[in-house]
Amino acid sequence: MMVYVARRLGAAVLILFGISVVTFLLLYLLPADPARQIAGRSASAQTVENIRAQLGLDQPLLVQYGRYASGLLRGDLGRSYLQRAEVSELIASRLPASLILMAAGIVAELVIGLGMGIAAAVRRGRPTDQALMVTAFVFVSAPQFVVGILLLYVFAVQLGWFPIGGYGTIWHAVLPALTLGLIGAGWYGRIMRSSLIDVLAQDFVRTARAKGLARSRVLFRHALPNAILPIIAMVGIDIGIFMSGIVVVESVFGWPGVGQLTWQAIQRVDIPIIMGVTLVSAGFIVLGNLLADLVAPLIDPRIKLR
């Protein structure tokens, strides 16, 4: 186990290094000028050049990346151009809010998606199955900002059940979590249905039924643990995706997390924050995949870590 974890962590370092190179290159090629954003539209060309020199943006690409990479080796994500604060501190201050929203979103998509998938699989070919799969397709296809605005209008503005936006109580998290969860629930529902249908057709399930076991026991004790393995892998990926993909949701609901910080940085071309959030999100994806791989053998002992 320890050898496997060490090998995966070593691979993670290489992955993060590659991501840092690609992201830095793409940001370097952007037509936007961070120095101009800092100086303002009315600033003179000399002022812009002075700011560019202070930030080291007048140096060649390799020099700029070398300086950034040396900071990464010391655990330094750089300093925000506009907020004049360490990127690591800015991310750390926003991270708890994003982690709460991420956890709530994953719970929402699991509860809704697994429920849809199981109900559709046990009623395969019936109107219930077809209705649930159409619903799952709608969830998958709906843009996040549209879902968020609709939920806000119906449940916050019209019905007044939840706050319109903000952060602080469990009620503030319900609508943002549903916005994240409904889209993921569509994928989980479709995959859960397909996986469970395959498992229900296997010999060990037929044997369990032939022994006279209750239908619910066959489903939840024998079939579901084997069918849920693809879902575990998806949850591991979602951990990282939610960290980097909640920009729209946090903006719609005024949620003070990493996504909102990222959106502000993109608008202002604050490259150190964009780089920092990208690397942190990539780290969460790697960590989520590792955790999924470690949990899978606990559910199915036939899986061996190599």
Rank of each mutant, 00 (worst) to 15 (best):
F220D: 09
F220W: 15
F220E: 07
R221H: 11
R221S: 14
H222W: 11
A223H: 04
A223T: 02
L224C: 03
P225I: 04
P225C: 10
A227C: 10
A227V: 12
A227F: 01
I228F: 12
L229R: 01
L229T: 03
P230Y: 02
I231F: 07
I231Q: 07
I232T: 05
A233D: 11
A233C: 05
V235K: 13
V235Y: 06
V235F: 05
G236C: 09
G236F: 05
I237L: 15
D238L: 11
D238I: 00
I239C: 07
I239K: 03
I239Q: 05
I239E: 01
G240N: 06
M243S: 05
S244N: 12
G245F: 02
I246A: 15
V247G: 12
V247A: 14
V248I: 15
E250L: 02
S251N: 12
S251M: 05
V252H: 06
V252W: 04
V252M: 04
P256V: 04
G257D: 14
G257W: 09
G257S: 12
V258S: 02
V258E: 10
G259M: 09
G259A: 05
Q260Y: 11
Q260N: 13
Q260D: 03
L261M: 11
L261C: 11
L261T: 10
T262L: 13
T262G: 13
A265K: 01
R268I: 09
V269H: 14
V269Q: 12
V269D: 00
V269R: 15
V269G: 00
D270F: 08
D270C: 11
D270M: 10
I271S: 02
P272W: 13
P272C: 09
I273T: 07
M275P: 00
M275Q: 15
V277Y: 01
V277D: 06
L279K: 08
V280D: 02
V280M: 10
S281I: 07
S281T: 15
I285K: 02
I285Q: 03
I285Y: 14
V286T: 03
V286M: 14
G288A: 10
N289L: 14
L290W: 08
L290Y: 13
L290E: 01
L290N: 02
L290S: 03
L291N: 01
L291G: 01
A292R: 02
D293N: 06
D293P: 09
L294C: 09
V295A: 11
V295D: 02
A296I: 15
I299D: 00
D300M: 12
D300K: 05
D300R: 10
P301I: 06
I303N: 10
K304E: 14
K304W: 00
